[in-house]
């Protein structure tokens, strides 16, 4: 601002009375700004607070169980441990939303604007950085697989929720919570490809699921420190309960089959440990 120079020069010549009045006016400036922000639902002027980071490390595996199974490999032939179906996965991604940390002694820290896409495309290990976690002791975690109903009905969104991410149905508004695609000789029809686009946020078709678990010990977040929550995600869990590829076909909209897969997938997550 061009006037700053003049302001500084003049300030030194002001009497203490003027200085006092000036400071009062400045104080008003700050006070009015913060209250205006509050009114607009914005972030209030932050108090200096000790904050750390939690890395949610999701190691995608393929096998009968989370802990003893090999890492998930896309574009490689896999055999389902339950059904015996052979398949090759070409895409495996999903929304992790609304992360909450359970505070030692009760209550939760709720991450604001908490929407991320976990994509196992390039690496079996997907790390989601959860920043600005207030320092303190935490005993557990919750997150949503999918996107809450509010953001499915609120128009244009940005960031992880932008429709350009390809996790959005333009003709039947809603987010694709889980997107799994691949090929299998068991797929019926003219093409071996299959696609499970899982979503739905209303009534019986609600496919939003919450993963809720305790650490078993206390995780201490220190100022500028980083803690890790390590989980296995068993990708094979999609077909749990004897779901055969030939029975599922393609899933491109909310419905009973999407709900079934969402039910299955929420149990794909298994805590390995924290550190």
């Amino acid at each position: 601002m061009k006037t700053t120079k003049h302001l500084n020069k003049t300030k030194s010549t002001l009497s203490s009375l003027y200085k006092g009045l000036f400071m009062m006016a400045l104080a008003f400036t700050l006070a009015s700004c913060s209250s205006d922000d509050d009114d607009n639902g914005g972030t209030p002027t932050p108090e200096p607070e000790a904050k750390g980071t939690v890395n949610l490390n999701l190691t995608h595996v393929w096998g009968p169980s989370g802990s003893n199974s090999p890492e998930l490999q896309l574009n490689t032939e896999l055999t389902h441990p339950g059904t015996g179906d052979t398949l090759t996965l070409t895409m495996y991604k999903y929304y992790v939303s609304n992360v909450k940390l359970k505070k030692d002694g009760g209550g939760e820290w709720v991450e604001p604007e908490s929407y991320r896409i976990a994509d196992a495309q390039d690496n079996a290990l997907v790390t989601l950085n959860i920043g600005d976690v207030p320092a303190g002791n935490y005993t557990g975690m919750k997150f949503t697989i999918g996107v809450d109903a509010e953001r499915n009905t609120s128009g244009a969104q940005e960031g992880a929720l932008s429709p350009v991410n390809g996790m959005f149905w333009d003709w039947n508004t809603g987010y694709i919570f889980i997107k799994v695609e691949g090929e299998s000789p068991h797929q019926t029809g003219h093409s071996p490809s299959f696609a499970y686009h899982i979503g739905g946020f209303e009534g019986d078709n609600n496919a939003i699921r919450t993963v809720d678990f305790d650490f078993g010990s206390t995780m201490t977040i220190t100022n500028n420190g980083t803690s890790n929550v390590n989980m296995y995600v068993n990708a094979a869990r999609i077909w749990h309960g004897g779901l055969k590829i030939e029975d599922l076909g393609h899933i491109h909209m909310p419905g009973a089959r999407a709900v079934q897969i969402a039910d299955n997938f929420q149990f794909a997550f298994m805590l390995d440990g924290i550190n």
Binding site: N152, T153, S154, G155, A156, P163, F168, D170, W171, N172, T173, G174
Partner: peptide, 20 residues
């Protein structure tokens, strides 16, 4: 929006004809 009401918000309506 649309004849079947598949689109639930005016802001996301244009995506459908753009991408169809």
């Amino acid at each position: 929006f649309n004849w079947d009401g598949g689109i639930n918000h005016i802001e996301v309506q244009p995506i459908a004809p753009i991408q169809d």
